[in-house]
Design a binder for these strands. Structure first.
Length: 619
DNA sequence: CGACCCATAAACATCC
DNA sequence: CGGATGTTTATGGGTC
């Protein structure tokens, strides 16, 4: 689970994603001269265009070679009658050798790049379905088009070879051609930059077909280029050139970062960077798992004594614990594997992972806990393994848990039985005393307005009326205390959080947490804020913070939308899950706001908007 | 101390 | 009839 999430996180993270897609698209372009316009109407047409472009590029490359005065490779057809045949042959040989050599070099580079890509793909970095800007290895997408890898490679070599020649100063007389050729090469190699320049190139004599193809992919290419442009500055590694506008940037990109050895090298470096980050991530993940394993695998303490709990409680939340174990509490380690380890576990895990959590042990949630704890999504995620294996009662109310279960469902709805399953699956604690907690679940479902029962084809499913849920929470949290809570809670784990969050931010790993939530690619870019918080290993701490933030948000949200006395009831029908088979692409975005009742689930844009609002609110 | 929240238990109703 | 599912009421501990 955690690994899954991590992978997804990686692939989802804006950094890796943008980075990779742009990177790979460049490399890709280089490797196959011509990127499929992905989005083009039909695959066939795209393929055709691609093929055509490749041919043209190849031709251009050959022409360039032919026109090279000195060492140009002359085709048999172009015999210079005035020169002795021998001489011509020698020249040809020379040029051919030169070309071969260059091709070999480039081929090596390409292989390296491919390896990188492959590695990353294997690691899930490039798991996205091939699409625009999506890295595709020659053999993968192109082969279907009818081109063998060998052919493609040859094409690539041809093109790059010609390009390399240009770099070698072999472009004089063939200026026109080389320019054209150049543009074609770069345009394909650097999708982002290409569009504009491509136009020039095209106008300079490129075939209409090619022109057309470029037009079609112009949009995506431009879009891709945007990831390299921000705040008026070129974000190409080590560049930072100031560009007044995007157009200028594109020119800059094309001129300064065209496909050449330097750019290629930089790409490789960037790949390495990404790889390093990934490695580091996996290490950190391992560490986290080890920590968690250590904490809950610990040779179970003799017995869950209240003391430890008290200790914990005293440290963190206090009161809760004394009451300690509910009847069914861990006291009786039903599972040998998951010794209740209350003490050590709690004192450590929670303390490490989250303060709010700690208390959980004894009495399940209390207002207090609830107040400080955050949306499960974020909180549980980081400690997923922990709760899954440790027979520890989660510090959340049934309502919270139920909501989380539902939220994690792809379609935001679950049958009672599915909710049960989620409980048992997610928490070791709920693998016992089924009658008790199941009854409680049912009780909560019926009791709380935020849970809406929906008649379905199959039967009945339960959904969450986010409005109601938030309303409830905001009511609890609201008041003067709300404001106070935020800062205090923030300060709570400040030290830990600060560094961590900073690290995360820097690393651009927004979606680090939420295993199940990150499944959908759609979430990747969308739900970062929440996910980010949740993602951090310090989940709970952050969770706390988050919760508060969440509460604040909720507050703001409700108030913001209908400031004076929002009328919770009348507003929007709570999630119409029933009528419409929602296709929420993401179960991710655990964020309550995302699911807010009033909007149809489908829109990622909405999500982004909400996100925006969210962040705004936060600020 | 009272209001409120939450968990738990249980009676009862419905449906399959 | 029995089990699953829902609803409702009661009770008690904890928090504010």
């Amino acid at each position: 689970m955690m690994q899954e999430s991590a992978n997804e996180t990686i692939s989802n993270s804006s950094m890796s994603q943008n980075g990779m897609s742009s990177l790979s698209s460049q490399l890709d372009a280089g490797s196959r001269d011509g990127r499929s316009s992905g989005e083009t109407s039909s695959e066939v047409s795209a393929v055709e265009l691609l093929h055509l472009q490749q041919q043209q590029a190849l031709q251009a490359a050959r022409q360039l070679l032919l026109q090279q005065p000195g060492s140009g490779l002359k085709s048999p057809k172009n015999n210079d009658k005035q020169r002795p045949l021998q001489q011509q042959q020698q020249q040809q040989q020379l040029a051919a050798q030169q070309l071969v050599f260059q091709q070999q070099l480039l081929q090596m580079q390409q292989l390296q790049q491919q390896q990188h890509l492959l590695n990353m793909q294997r690691q899930g970095l490039l798991s996205l379905p091939p699409g625009p800007g999506q890295p595709t290895l020659p053999g993968q997408t192109l082969q279907p088009a009818g081109l063998s890898p060998a052919e493609l490679q040859q094409l690539w070599k041809d093109v790059t070879g010609s390009h390399a020649m240009e770099d070698n100063g072999l472009k004089h007389s063939g200026l026109d051609l080389s320019t054209t050729n150049n543009s074609s090469t770069t345009s394909t190699s650097n999708p982002k930059a290409s569009p504009p320049i491509t136009h020039h190139g095209i106008s300079n004599g490129q075939s209409p077909v090619l022109n057309h193809r470029r037009e079609s992919s112009l949009h995506e290419e431009t879009a891709a280029a945007q990831s390299l442009y921000g705040h008026g500055v070129c974000k190409w590694p080590g560049c930072e050139s100031v560009c007044d506008d995007f157009g200028q940037f594109l020119k800059h990109l094309n001129s300064e970062h065209a496909l050449d050895d330097r750019s290629t090298a930089q790409c490789r470096v960037q790949m390495q960077v990404v790889q390093q980050l990934e490695i580091q991530l996996s290490k950190e993940r391992e560490r986290l798992q080890a920590m968690m394993a250590h904490l809950h695998m610990r040779p179970s303490e003799p017995k869950p004594s209240p003391k430890p709990l008290n200790l914990v409680s005293s440290v963190t939340m206090s009161k809760n614990l004394p009451s300690v174990s509910p009847p069914n509490l861990p006291q009786t380690p039903t599972t040998p594997t998951a010794p209740v380890t209350p003490l050590s576990q709690m004192s450590q895990v929670p303390s490490v992972l989250s303060p709010a959590n700690v208390p959980s042990m004894g009495a399940m949630r209390r207002r207090h806990t609830d107040k400080y704890s955050m949306p499960l999504s974020s909180e549980i995620a980081p400690n997923y393994e922990f709760y899954k294996n440790a027979d520890v009662r989660p510090p959340f109310t049934y309502a919270t848990l139920i909501r989380q279960a539902i939220m994690e469902a792809g379609d935001m709805q679950l049958t009672l039985n599915e909710i049960y399953s989620w409980f048992t699956r997610t928490f070791a604690y709920f693998r016992r005393n089924a009658a008790t907690w199941k009854n409680a679940v049912r009780h909560n479902l019926s009791l709380h307005k935020c849970f809406v029962r929906v008649e379905n084809v199959k039967g009945a499913v339960w959904t969450v009326d986010e409005m109601e849920y938030q309303k409830r929470r905001s009511q609890k949290i609201t008041g003067p205390t709300l404001v106070k809570n935020l800062p205090s809670s923030l300060g709570y784990g400040a030290a830990l959080n600060a560094s961590l969050q900073a690290a995360l931010a820097e690393t651009s790993l927004p979606l680090l947490g939420n295993p199940g939530l990150m499944n959908s690619a759609s979430c990747m870019m969308g739900a970062s804020p929440p996910c980010l918080m949740s993602g951090s290993p310090t989940g709970l701490l952050q969770g706390t913070t988050h919760e508060d933030l969440n509460g604040t948000l909720d507050h703001l949200d409700t108030n913001g939308h209908s400031s004076p006395g929002y009328s919770p009831h009348t507003q929007l029908p709570p999630i119409h899950v029933k009528e419409e088979p929602l296709n929420m692409d993401d179960e991710d975005c655990p964020m309550s706001l995302v699911t807010t009742a009033n909007h149809s689930p489908e829109l990622d844009e909405d999500r982004e908007l909400e996100e925006g609002n969210l962040s705004e609110d936060l600020e």
